[in-house]
């Protein structure tokens, strides 16, 4: 397995604040990796260090077999804080950034309209950036990050500020780029987005890694404590079943989540549910990344910290 990004014992502080602490990371080439964590977890700082925009206090970083300074032309980067030259025409802006990425010549001018079409921004190449909406500007910035066809694409919160339709358009392009064999690392604090498109995730909290692996392997690590049931009789109560702590109706669904008590086993509860009433479906619920992350925070930093993170995810 070839490693696209390798971080060893990386630390970075800003004054008294430890932004990243002794972080080790390996991102295989060709993977679609989600870099997850709540706001302020250290995601953007880590990405900036990977890009050699800021330098680590300690540790080593290897990107595409070298350092990011030497590999900049092979990396596409969409920063969290995005910007354009407001007075510049869209095609000129994209061309300028592509030039800085080492891409020149008439072929560049030819592919810009095709790419704009691909991200559903046709006929804007001669408009000034300031004439575009914020969402459209964000798509232009995304295009500027990938137009030079980099081997490694690093996207910091690529979907923030995009409406669902545009998020889907960008998501599809990201998927296509991944299928073409490019390594993609993208950060988000909205974990379900990563759950939908990533084959691998890295979670950090307070600058330290808390989880790293494929989604399925991570989910397997966490014992499901919820049974999800869709009963034939929609008004039936499951609270009397032995081993069930409480039940919760899932919104806009006929399904009910049954929380399992600590002293009960999920399979026993599942059998009791099926015996209790006719059901359309009954299964052990796979934990979401949000749940896994909150549980991990609870383990590391206690219940109060986990509650704070839960609140943040709910508000995101």
């Amino acid at each position: 397995m070839t490693i696209a990004i390798e971080l060893q014992h990386i630390s970075k502080s800003f004054g008294e604040t430890k932004a990243v602490q002794n972080l080790d990371l390996e991102i295989p080439q060709g993977s679609m990796c989600g870099f997850l964590g709540p706001n302020g977890a250290g995601k953007s700082t880590t990405i900036r260090m990977i890009m050699s925009i800021i330098h680590a206090d300690s540790g080593s970083i290897n990107v595409l077999g070298t350092n990011a300074l030497d590999a900049k032309d092979r990396i596409g980067y969409l920063p969290e804080e995005r910007g354009v030259y407001r007075k510049m025409k869209v095609c000129k802006f994209i061309e300028y950034i592509a030039n800085l990425k080492g891409m020149y010549g008439p072929s560049l001018r030819k592919i810009i309209p095709d790419w704009l079409e691909r991200i559903e921004l046709p006929n804007v190449e001669n408009k000034k950036c300031e004439e575009l909406s914020k969402g459209m500007q964000q798509k232009v910035q995304f295009l500027a990050a990938v137009i030079h066809e980099p081997e490694l694409i690093i996207l910091d919160e690529p979907f923030s500020g995009l409406d669902p339709v545009n998020a889907r358009v960008i998501g599809k392009v990201i998927n296509d780029l991944h299928k073409e064999g490019r390594t993609i690392l993208f950060s988000t604090h909205i974990l379900y987005q990563a759950e939908q498109i990533c084959d691998r995730i890295i979670m950090i909290d307070q600058g330290a890694k808390v989880l790293d692996g494929s989604i399925s392997s991570i989910q397997e690590q966490f014992d499901p404590r919820v049974v999800q049931v869709e009963p034939v009789n929609k008004s039936i109560s499951f609270d009397s079943i032995e081993g069930v702590e409480h039940s919760t109706q899932i919104e806009r669904s006929n399904k009910v989540n049954l929380r399992i008590r600590e002293d009960a086993t999920p399979t026993d509860v599942l059998q009791r549910v099926v015996a209790f009433t006719p059901v359309i479906s009954a299964q052990l619920a796979r934990p979401t990344l949000d749940e896994i992350f909150i549980e991990q925070v609870a383990r590391n930093r206690g219940a109060d910290a986990a509650d704070a993170v839960r609140m943040e995810f709910e508000n995101a």
């Binding site: 050699s52 300074l69 900049k72 920063p79 910007g83 354009v84 950034i97 800085l100 910035q141 500027a144």
Partner: peptide, 16 residues
């Protein structure tokens, strides 16, 4: 202006 319109990080991703 480049700092203000946040384009600086895009530039720094391409050049030192």
């Amino acid at each position: 202006e480049e700092k203000g319109n946040k384009v600086i990080e895009v530039l720094l991703s391409a050049i030192s």
